[in-house]
Structures are given as C-alpha cells and as structure tokens.
Design a protein around this nucleic acid. Structure first.
Length: 276
DNA sequence: CAAGTTACCTGACGGC
DNA sequence: TGCCGTCAGGTAACTT
C-alpha cells in the first residue's frame, strides 16, 4: 500500500497525537509480521517512556522516546496505523495495540503482515544508517539526490529506469505507483536502459519525482483500495493518476492509448507518444 | 557484480 | 456456489 507520500501523511497525522504521550501498555495478536514482534523488548523499552518525536525516513516511521530509544515501523504492503477508543472493537488483522495515557489506542493493522516493528536502543539509534538503513538511499527531497549522482550511478548499468528508481538504494520511497507517474511526468519511457539517459533527462526526472510526491502528499496520499490516514480518512491523489492502472485508456495529454507491460515483475504503464 | 526470480501472506476478482 | 489462477501499494534473499 504505502509509498513515501502515504507514509508521510500517516507521519503527519500521528505526530500531534503521539508527541508528549506515554504508552502505558501493549496488546499483540501474537502473529509475526515480516519479523517476530519483539514484545518483551517493547514492554521494557517503550512502555512508560515519553514520546518526543515522530518522523519519517524512506518508508519507515520513527518514534523517538525520551530515553533515546526509538520505535521503527514499516507498513509493508498493507500496514496501517490509526487511533481508536478502547471500546472500539478490534478489526481483523489488528496486530499491535499501543495503549496511550490519553485514553486512546494506536492500532497497527496489516492484512498481509509484510510490515515490521522494531525497537532500537540509544546505542543502536546512534548507528541508524549502518544498521537499519544499510540498503536505504538518499531521500528524494535531499540535495544529494542530484542529476550528477544518478548519472554516475547509472552510466555502466543496463537496468530499466523504472526498476532503477524503485530500488531503495538508488532513492528512498519511490514505489510502483509513483515510479509510473513520475516517468510520465518526465516524458521518459519506463523501459529505457539507465545508461541511455542524459544528465538533462535525470534532472528532469528528479523534478518530476519531487513534484509528483509533493502533490500526492498534499492530496493525502493515494487510496487504491483501502489506504486511510491515521484519522481513517482516504487520500485522493488517485484521481490525478495519468498512467497508473490506465492500460488501454486514452492519454489525457494526447489521446494515445496507454500501454501496459511488465517491467521487473511490476505492472508498468506509459503513453507511447508522450514518453520517449 | 548486476539483474532477474522467488518468497513471505491474505484477499479480491474473473473465468469456468 | 466454489475452485483455480492471477494480481496487489514492499523488500530481502536467492539464483543466474
């Protein structure tokens, strides 16, 4: 489900309700996510600590505690977080419930259980990039995500540009939807081999990625089937999709038929006329 | 070493 | 009605 915009929307929704709160208890389904839920460590290192910050790195949510420890949550494909009253009946696939000191609960729901929850000690937090983020590249809004960086990284490689920008080590947070949409916005075909792109095309693609992600965040993310923010509201960027999920339909810019093909095992869409 | 494939898990949908 | 194959927003661990 969530790519960078959806995680950012959830992050912004969580922050005002979590900062200055204390987790007073934890309930878990007992089912493992991508990794087993470290319930004992959570009881010891999360419960009764004051929450200081809620931030995002790539598609990870980072909850900073007054001890210097940090809770790190990844939503996988179907993960979601929201606030509920204790009286609200738990939903199917609610796996973790954090009881808060303001009478609400933060619930983590994840149908496919591809997400993860980790707790890091202050020592581990000080080595975040070498530990959790070893395969996580630059943030798309950071200054080290530049045309020169991409050109150098790509010059001796043959992979399709769409697979390349979906690789977290290249740039963090761009998944299938926003890779398709960004390449349309940049006028670049998704199956172009990366070594064929000029510095100018990389510069154009960077601008397109930033604009698409920014617009999606402003729209509250994209709701394909079930994404909701922390307040259980849907996003509406999907009404702005130009190519994603539109195979066989007319391009809104030129009227040509949007093509669908498989690139690197993922559904890929492009306008054969607008994208070169 | 880069690039392609498989695996993790549940559910929705279309075809028969 | 149900069974089967396919597909889905992610990513790490394989294989080639």
């Amino acid at each position: 489900m969530p790519e960078l915009p959806e995680v950012e929307v959830i992050c912004r929704g969580l922050r005002p309700h979590l900062v200055d709160r204390v987790v007073t208890g934890i309930l878990a389904s007992g089912k493992a996510l991508r990794e087993p839920v470290p319930l004992d460590r959570l009881q010891r290192e999360l419960v009764n600590r004051l929450i200081m910050s809620v931030t995002r790195r790539a598609k990870f949510l980072q909850v900073g505690l007054d001890s210097g420890a940090m809770l790190i949550i990844h939503l996988g494909m179907t993960g979601n977080l929201g606030f509920f009253t204790p009286a609200t009946e738990p939903a199917k696939h609610d796996h973790i419930r954090l009881i808060l000191d303001n009478g609400l609960e933060l619930r983590y729901n994840d149908t496919r259980r591809f997400g993860s929850i980790r707790i890091l000690s202050p020592a581990e937090v000080s080595r975040l990039e070498e530990t959790v983020y070893t395969t996580t590249g630059p943030e798309p809004f950071g200054e080290d995500f530049s045309a020169g960086y991409l050109f150098r990284l790509a010059k001796s490689r043959e992979v399709a540009v769409k697979s390349f920008i979906m690789t977290n080590q290249v740039v963090a947070g761009v998944g299938n939807i926003y890779a398709n949409e960004s390449l349309f916005r940049a006028g670049i075909r998704p199956d172009r081999k990366v070594r064929s792109l000029s510095q100018k095309e990389w510069a154009k693609l960077i601008v397109a990625i930033r604009e698409v992600l920014t617009h999606a965040i402003e729209c509250g993310g994209s709701t394909i089937s079930d994404f909701v923010n922390a307040g259980q509201e849907k996003g509406y960027f999907q009404i702005n999709f130009k190519v994603y999920g539109k195979g066989g339909m007319a391009c809104t810019a030129c009227g040509a038929v949007i093509a669908k093909k498989n690139i690197g095992g993922r559904a890929s869409y492009c306008c054969p006329k607008c994208q070169k």
